[in-house]
Every structure is written in C-alpha cells, then in structure tokens.
Design a protein around this nucleic acid. Structure first.
Lengths: 191, 191
DNA sequence: CGTAGCATGTAAACAGTTACATGATTGT
DNA sequence: ACAATCATGTAACTGTTTACATGCTACG
C-alpha cells in the first residue's frame, strides 16, 4: 500500500531511475521507517507505469548501462494527493522477540539475559544510527518540509528509547527471578 | 519465521486444533504482538506436519464437524528449543503513517492535524486494550511464565505510551507551523 | 587483480490478507 | 428467522525477501 505512494512522493520532487530511488531516496531518508529492496521498487515502478501514474524514458549513456528515468504524471500526482489525505489504519504490531520471551519460561535466567542483551545491542545501534542523522541547516523555503522530516526521526527516537527502557526493566526483572527453570510444560515423554 | 514457532510453543503446552489455536491461543495471548489469521495457521500446520514437527489425528464428533487435533513431536520440541535460544535480528520497522507525514508538506495544517488525531485515536485504543488485559492471580508454579507474559504486555504499554507522547509533540509542532502551505514541489505544469 | 559502484532486471520462495464455501447447533 | 459458535479448509491476491544474472568503469 505505502511503497508505491512513497515512490510517487519522491518522483513528485524530481524524476529518477529505480536505482536512484533505492540508493539516493529510500536508503537516505525513509529507510528508517520503510525499508525497501530493489526488486520491489522495480516491480512497483512497472505497476505504476501500467496504471499511468508514472512514465519513463531511456537515456543512453556511453560506457555505463542505460538509465531508465521515471517521472510522475498528472494522474500520479492526483493519486498521491488523494492518498496523502487518507488516514491509514494503525497496523498490527509484530515483534518476533516477544514470541521467544512468551514461550521462554524453560530457558535459564542466563539464557534469557543473553537474549535480552542481544536485543539491547540491536536497539542501541538503531538509536545511535538515528541520532547520527544530521539535518542540514534549514533553507527558509523548506522549513515546513524539514519540520516534518524531523518529526519522523523523532518518532524513531521515542520508540527506540522506550524499547531500551523496557529492555532494562526486563533485564532487572529476569535477574530477580528465582533461578530454578520453570517446570517443563507437559510432554508425552515425561507425563 | 515466527508463526510456526509460536504454533509449536502452544502445542508444546497441549494438543489443539487449528481453530483452537486461532480462537483460544493466538487471539487471547500473543495477538498483541503477533496477530495471526486462520488460513495462515492452517497452512503452517500443514507445513509443520510435512516437516515432522507435529502430527495430527482426527476426532469424530456427533453433530459437530470433526476435530483435527495436532500435537507436537519430539522433533518439533527439539526445533522449538533450538529456536528459543536463537537471537533474532531486530526487524526493520514499518510505519506507513510516517510516509504520509514525510511527504505531507503540501497539506494544510488542519489536514495534518486531522491525520495526527486519527492516529492518536487508534493508538489510544490500543493502549486501552492493553491496559484492559488482566493477568489472573499467580499460581505459584507459574510465576516464571507469568512474569514473562507480563513483560510482553509491558513492552506494548511502553511503546504505545511513547507513540502517544510523540503524537502530542507532533500536534503541538504542527499547530505552531506557519500556516502557509509549503510551495508545491516542482511540477511539469507550474514550472 | 579484485572490489565497489553504476544500472538494469528476473525467478522463486515465503508471509500475510481477504473472500469464499460448507454445514450443523445453539441462542435471541 | 437470524446471528453466532464450532470447525474445516481453498483460492486468489498482495507484499517482502533472497538469490541470481549481466556487464562496464574506476579505484586501490
């Protein structure tokens, strides 16, 4: 749902190739909240072209492969505009780590701690990456756009900090658990 | 990746049908961090059976459709155990709403506010749902399991509160924005 | 001489959602 | 008479990821 519209959003700023979209646009700005891989971008570009939302021309280059440059059409701009005003449902949250924790009563405290610490390292790295993003000094015409960009970064910061706080709580809680591993859930063999 | 292991986790506690897994197990416990729909459960059960991780027998019932009861095999228990100790990578976060915000500089302040408020309502509802979950009084043998369950709920609470805090910040920020809509990004027609 | 960057994609698998189909029983 | 619960699934689609394939140039 969102990826084609993100592509339209970028092409609405300037025409680009699929490769540009991946390396210049996605990986440098929205990757923190919407990572995209190349095959997906190419596929959605093909679909958008079929739908008349974008069009492309091939630029011949010497020595390098040809560039297929996509640009948005008026119909694409209309669609983007419509979508931007449409309120999306809050999507279901998926947290694979919590499944482990939920079923992890049979693990030793040390094993639980190791899992929590691995998550901690991953989320700390995320937070560091977000904090390393520098927003260039505001060009006066761009204040509005930059403010919104800063807000998207802020959400990442809020969520990663909250996650880290929870991990620290969880580490303390696990450390305080009676070290006896839980009775194994009923099994065929030991019943 | 996680769904088949969650199924193994439940079947490790007791044998169940696909329907039970959906209505008794998933919807009542892990749905907050791993929603699952029926076709997925049935498909993964078929795959798990093909892999030898579960087996099933059909119980004939009068008046009601037959029950196909699945139970975990020793191989399934081994696989579950292995997986529980394997540290998962922190998954890429996808937040469709941020794409709108990122590209939303052309919207009026009132439109941005409306989008933010719709998200706020959705996340407040989530928080309310999490807070409404009551954990039954701890059976002494289950302290460990219950502690871990409580931790999974706690993460949801932490994250939803952080999201709401950010939304409130964002609403204030947008309210303070110069109401002039941003200059439209360069287009074919108005260049 | 190997690696990274430029630039295109295809193929195939896996994950997730929505809609459909069946059919009995129990409750309003 | 209608809806909900029990209980099974299939079909079709959309979205996401991983691996593969091609070929040239510039850098160390």
């Amino acid at each position: 749902m969102s990826l084609p519209h993100a592509i339209l959003g970028f092409l609405n700023v300037m025409p680009m190739t699929g490769y540009d979209l991946k390396t210049q646009a996605f990986d440098r700005s929205v990757a923190h909240f919407w990572p995209a891989v190349q095959p997906q971008i190419y596929r959605d570009l093909a679909r958008l072209e079929a739908a008349g939302h974008v069009r492309s021309e091939t630029e011949v280059q010497r020595g390098k492969p040809n560039r297929r440059v996509y640009h948005i059409t008026p119909a694409g701009r209309t669609e983007l505009d419509r979508w931007l005003r449409t309120s999306p449902a809050v999507p279901g949250h998926r947290e694979p780590f919590l499944i482990q924790l939920f079923f992890g009563a049979g693990l030793a405290n040390s094993e639980l701690t190791a899992l929590l610490q691995a998550q901690r390292a991953g989320h700390q790295a995320r937070l560091d990456a977000l904090q390393a993003v520098t927003i260039p000094p505001p060009a006066p015409a761009d204040v509005r756009r930059q403010t919104l960009t800063r807000l998207t970064l802020d959400l990442g910061l809020h969520l990663e900090r909250a996650y880290l706080n929870w991990l620290d709580d969880a580490l303390r809680t696990v450390a305080a658990l009676d070290p006896a591993p839980a009775p194994a859930p009923m099994t065929d063999t030991d019943a």
